[in-house]
Design a protein around this nucleic acid. Structure first.
Lengths: 147, 147
DNA sequence: TATTGTTATACTCTATAACTATA
DNA sequence: TATAGTTATAGAGTATAACAATA
């Protein structure tokens, strides 16, 4: 695609992604982790603990929004607040065993649902989608770098 | 991709899409149409009028949720309720001129933002993403058919 | 009685502004 | 005074249950 067609391409990409987004939300099981909760938990799953502020920046939401999200996660026993002995102002967040299990279950269910749809696609379509993933990952990286 | 690897592929696809969605939401200008409002308006933009129930089914949300959404759109003068002379129970929804203009402005801003990110990608990455769009559209079609 | 839509209520997710506690 | 986090408040978006109006 030549650079001068980037804007036309952007329209098409956005349109498809918007519809895909709504589809994925529809097939997501209702009694499960929300996108926001899952995203934050995934971030915690990777490392050890994270400060509430750092987590809010990484997730791209405000500090009060993260305070509330952590409170909800704590209420459901998916994450917990830990005091930082070196700085009394700081709150560290840690994922719980139940949080890890919730992530695992969510991954399984969602992959199963999407897998059913993928299985109905022609091989060439599956290949085209998989082939685009590294490019999309780089796009995400560029977008996040600008934050 | 062989069929037996569909589940592994599904995990990777979902992970990338989840991060992509959060990125797109972040780069969306705050004082603009939400994803839900824009999706419903786009549906109205295409045809003439739609019944509230039909719109809720098409958008994959409940009837009360659509009632509220239409009320918000009406408050902002983006859509309006029209009585159906043939059936007193029915409410028809119609997009307004301001609604069309809001869609246009939203498309322009979002395409511009995404275009900036796309322009920073190597040509091969842009091509891979564009090449996957028809496949994703067919995936969406399959998913929506199951509704 | 069935269909169409609204109202009531509750929960998640988000924001900004004002506040508290600690450094 | 600056930083870390919480509380207060408001609004979008979603759901289920109960209701009203019309067919």
């Amino acid at each position: 695609m030549p650079v001068q067609d980037v804007d036309a391409g952007a329209h098409t990409i956005i349109s498809t992604l918007d519809r895909l987004f709504r589809l994925l939300r529809r097939i997501l099981p209702p009694d499960n982790l929300s996108l926001t909760a899952a995203s934050a938990l995934k971030r915690l799953e990777a490392g050890e603990t994270l400060r509430l502020t750092d987590l809010s920046v990484l997730e791209g939401i405000t500090q009060p929004a993260m305070t509330q999200l952590v409170s909800r996660l704590e209420k459901d026993n998916l994450a917990e607040r830990v005091k930082d002995p070196r700085d009394g102002r700081v709150v560290l967040i840690r994922i719980t065993g139940a949080g890890r299990e919730a992530l695992r279950a969510r991954r399984e269910v969602r992959a199963q649902r999407l897998g059913e749809l993928l299985a109905a696609l022609p091989d060439a379509d599956r290949e085209a989608i998989v082939a685009a993933l590294p490019a999309l990952d780089r796009l995400i990286e560029i977008g996040n770098a600008g934050t």
